[in-house]
Design a binder for these strands. Structure first.
Lengths: 259, 259
DNA sequence: AACGGAATATGACAAATATCAATTTGTTCT
DNA sequence: AGAACAAATTGATATTTGTCATATTCCGTT
């Protein structure tokens, strides 16, 4: 059942919702481009009909055709390794892009699976390239976003290489908080769309360890957890538990927050 | 003491070694651009005087000014965390770029330190941007290289999240082998410019564990190790030991090699 | 509403790797 | 060349986290 957001006349997948009317305008690809440029970009952006939970946006090995931006819902990227085994490489929340790892090889190294009913904007890469010849600002914006992704993956490498189980989960929850906050949602109360299994996989921990850490956090009064529903009571303490993290302060300076 | 860079006739730093005469032409930024485009790019590329072992190319927090390409030698990127503590985020061999994580924030999140006497080409980013307005191929090439870096960081995440100590070191050595091979050097015999400490740090292992694994590999007859000098006797077995790895086969297909 | 399978939680135990300590070897500086 | 320091190796032990087993809860399906 598709919710009532597209009730009356035009189905969601056909309805042209302009980028400038999108709640994600500030954090998606079009940020910082002029109205006229935006209009030309919008002409090539496709809005897919929502994908259901468990559906794949693409699979590892598929040819790369377009960059995707999450509009609502959430996506998990993972590298399938051996039979049944996989490594989760990232979660994509609204306003975030995915598929950037496929540009070079023209083939998707990861699979992308919807964690819930999710709608995405697709930007066909060939057309994007053509348009970028005239509008270098598009390339520039993509480069910026890719740079940010490289930086974030480095942050995650620090997590996987240096942090304890407790620090990992704390850092993870804090990161989710910040990302939700950025798009205008509550930083302290949300539903986790991914399973404990996915979280553990992403953090390099066993499922059981993740469970135990949730329990410990709750026993410590740091948060309340009821399955996927999370209420964080002390965001500051959570950040401290997460340990040192490279971060961009809102100004232009760069800092490392230690505990 | 400044070395004899302006001694005899033409100092190294002033000498124009054309990109097309560089041994790294095939793997550096200029790949796949026309002669005329290359000439214009070369005008903005600066060749720094070699940096000595231990010197920094830039420090965490420094303003971002240019992308660097390693010409010879090697560089370690690391995130300084607390006092003395650090997380190594990558090693850069000849033909490889560094600093891509700083484009977005305009500030370097990592420090970059020479592991040996190293020379780099610097591409001032502002000028690169201006030139790219006229030559979109430059942007395109940068995007390709960034995409490749994102992919490689994902591969490293799989290593940190899923692999045993043995697999990690094997994967690391195999990766070094492939990268040397690519630039025309021996894949089976080389000097590691980085310390065991750096290797362990990068792989999320204690120094002692790295040492023990080297010993084990040698006892197994897989390789001969004499401090930094490595001779690999069975590259195929090394790859098998490294476990499943996402890789681009030379064609256009995508595969996962499982041991 | 009842069933069945999947996800989560919790406890007991095992294993891999980190930590600590001591020794050897190599490198740098005077 | 020798002294002092740093890096690497090796062994003994500790600790964290993974694995296995079991119980419980939840959710989707019939």
């Amino acid at each position: 059942m598709v919710p009532s957001r597209n009730s009356s006349v035009v189905p969601l997948s056909k309805r042209k919702i302009a980028c400038k009317d999108c709640s994600l305008f500030q954090i998606c690809l079009p940020v910082g481009i002029s109205e006229e440029e935006l209009e030309r970009l919008e002409k090539i952006i496709q809005r897919r009909r929502p994908v259901k939970r468990g559906d794949h946006l693409y699979n590892s090995g598929d040819p790369f055709r377009s960059i995707c931006a999450v509009r609502s819902g959430s996506i998990k990227s993972y590298v399938p390794t051996e039979k049944g085994n996989e490594q989760v490489t990232g979660f994509h929340l609204p306003g975030e892009l995915l598929g950037l790892d496929a540009i070079s090889q023209k083939i998707h190294p990861c699979s992308a699976k919807a964690l819930e009913t999710t709608s995405v904007c697709e930007i066909p890469y060939e057309q994007f390239e053509l348009l970028s010849n005239e509008l270098p600002v598009l390339h520039r914006q993509l480069i910026n976003l890719m740079s940010k992704e490289i930086f974030e993956e480095e942050t995650h490498m620090v997590l996987l290489g240096k942090k304890s189980a407790e620090e990992r989960l704390a850092a993870y929850l804090f990161s989710i908080s910040m990302r939700y906050q950025r798009r205008g949602f509550s930083a302290t109360e949300y539903y986790l769309s991914m399973s404990r299994n996915d979280i553990g996989n992403y953090l390099g921990l066993a499922v059981e360890t993740v469970s135990r850490m949730f329990t410990r956090f709750q026993d410590d009064g740091l948060l309340t957890v009821e399955r996927k529903h999370i209420i964080i009571h002390n965001l500051d303490r959570l950040r401290h538990l997460a340990g040192a993290m490279p971060c961009k302060s809102d100004g232009n300076s760069f800092c490392f927050t230690r505990s």
